Amino acid sequence: MKQNVGGIDRILRIVVGVALIAAAATGTVGAWGWIGIVPLATGLIGWCPPYAIFGVNTCKTKTEG
């Protein structure tokens, strides 16, 4: 798996994922808040299946030189 999630995208995914999980764990939102596991996981591993399918890549490209 080649990483396709980078930088700010990863940070936002992790923050949103943790916030949703915390809200679900405290009962602030319903059980749907556990969906926060998905953005948390994709942020931590740096790979998103829909990005791979649609050819999206938010990682910085390395320039040779």
Score class of each variant (00 low, 15 high):
Met1Asn: 06
Lys2His: 11
Lys2Val: 14
Lys2Met: 11
Lys2Cys: 04
Lys2Tyr: 06
Lys2Trp: 04
Gln3Lys: 14
Asn4Ala: 00
Asn4Met: 03
Val5Thr: 06
Val5Asp: 02
Val5Met: 04
Val5Cys: 09
Gly7Asn: 11
Gly7Lys: 06
Gly7Trp: 05
Ile8Lys: 11
Ile8Phe: 09
Asp9His: 09
Leu12Cys: 12
Leu12Asn: 02
Arg13Cys: 01
Arg13Glu: 04
Arg13Pro: 07
Ile14Val: 14
Ile14Phe: 01
Val15Phe: 12
Val15Met: 01
Val16Gln: 05
Val16Cys: 04
Gly17Phe: 00
Gly17His: 00
Ala19Gly: 03
Leu20Gln: 01
Leu20Glu: 04
Leu20Ser: 10
Leu20Thr: 14
Ile21Lys: 03
Ile21Arg: 02
Ala22Gln: 08
Ala23Asp: 11
Ala23Lys: 12
Ala23Met: 10
Ala24Thr: 03
Ala25Trp: 10
Gly27Arg: 12
Gly27Leu: 08
Val29Thr: 14
Val29Glu: 04
Val29Ala: 06
Gly30Asp: 03
Gly33Arg: 06
Trp34Phe: 14
Ile35Gln: 05
Gly36Phe: 05
Ile37Trp: 15
Val38Gln: 00
Val38Thr: 01
Pro39Lys: 04
Pro39Asp: 03
Leu40Tyr: 02
Ala41Met: 07
Ala41Gln: 03
Ala41Cys: 05
Thr42Trp: 04
Thr42His: 12
Gly43Cys: 03
Gly43Asn: 00
Gly43His: 01
Gly43Thr: 00
Ile45Ala: 03
Ile45Phe: 03
Trp47Gln: 10
Cys48Gly: 04
Cys48Pro: 02
Cys48Val: 10
Cys48Ile: 01
Pro49Thr: 07
Pro49Asp: 05
Tyr51Ala: 14
Ile53Trp: 15
Ile53His: 14
Ile53Asn: 09
Ile53Ser: 05
Gly55Val: 04
Gly55Glu: 09
Val56Met: 12
Val56Gly: 03
Val56Asn: 05
Asn57Thr: 11
Cys59Pro: 01
Lys60Arg: 15
Lys60Gln: 14
Thr61Met: 12
Thr61Asp: 15
Gly65His: 06
Gly65Val: 11
